[in-house]
């Protein structure tokens, strides 16, 4: 069952619109001029040489990446635990757990950002990467919570029962049956959490300190000054790198699956 010609045409046009900004940025990064023009003037790799030699970009990349991973891991753990609590816990009303887990998703960033800053500045977390990682993790919790909750509803309780009937202890059942069943969903949620953190600028700007400068913060300061081709180059490298990582991961997973079947 294939889609009709009309919708296919729309899809292709939209695809071009989606990709257009990225294409423009990639093209302008190879300009030999000092200002961004499109089409670019001449061809050169000078801006790539510049960013690879620039500490600020390298440091920001490391900070962004570390923050993103920390945030994703924290969000995965918290989101998963809350999902289990909502689905299977009996003490705390489920609605309470769900409200708590979902709120970060519906609070506009600028609102959350002010709150994070006003609260965290009073603690020793401030001026440390954990402050931003924790804040970003909170933004990622709803994704992980939802994904795991959805997976839990799909888990047939009889599978676990079967395992325990066969003599497995409770912890064994959790470790060998339940966790593997929901892990992919938790990781997918974590991926969303990572993206959220990776591209987040409002909260990051508020919590930024000399040692805590992420890529979006650099981008924003460049955007305010008028972008330079070096920014295009950095953005292109980052997009490419991210995609390459994902493709490698995809290939790895294919090979793993090939082995297991």
């Amino acid at each position: 069952m294939n889609a009709g010609l009309f919708s296919r045409t729309i899809a292709v046009v939209v695809a071009l619109l989606l990709a257009a900004p990225t294409i423009v940025i990639a093209a302008t990064s190879f300009t030999s001029g000092v200002i961004i023009t499109f089409p670019p003037k001449g061809f050169s790799m000078r801006w790539y040489e510049e960013i690879f030699g620039d500490r600020a970009w390298r440091d920001a990349f490391v900070t962004s990446f570390t923050t993103g991973i920390l945030a994703a891991v924290i969000a995965m753990v918290i989101g998963t635990l809350l999902a289990f609590m909502a689905a299977r816990g009996r003490l705390v009303p489920r609605s309470l757990v769900a409200t708590l887990a979902m709120t970060p998703m519906i609070v506009p960033l600028v609102v959350a950002g002010i709150g994070f800053y006003m609260a965290y500045v009073h603690t020793s977390l401030y001026n440390h990467i954990t402050s931003l990682a924790l804040a970003h993790a909170m933004l990622g919790v709803p994704f992980c919570f939802l994904n795991v909750l959805a997976a839990l509803t799909a888990v047939d309780p009889r599978v676990e029962e079967a395992a325990s009937i066969c003599g497995a202890g409770k912890l064994t059942v959790i470790a060998t049956v339940t966790v593997p069943l929901v892990l992919p969903s938790a990781v997918a949620g974590g991926l969303f959490a990572f993206v959220t953190s990776w591209d987040e600028v409002v909260v990051a700007t508020l919590l930024a300190t000399p040692t805590l400068r992420t890529l979006p913060i650099l981008f924003l300061s460049q955007l305010r000054e008028g972008l330079e081709p070096s920014t295009s180059a950095a953005a292109t490298v980052i997009t490419l790198l991210t995609i390459v990582l994902l493709v490698i991961a995809g290939l790895l997973s294919r090979r793993q699956r090939g082995r297991s079947t």
Binding site: F65, T66, L191
Partner: peptide, 25 residues
């Protein structure tokens, strides 16, 4: 299927974290 890919993607990212974090400081 997508989930499985993503899960491995995430693991790969995690591994990279280890490398980057160790090399970063």
């Amino acid at each position: 299927m997508m989930v499985k890919k993503l899960s491995v993607a995430m693991t790969a990212l995690l591994l990279c974290l280890g490398l980057v974090a160790c090399g970063g400081d």
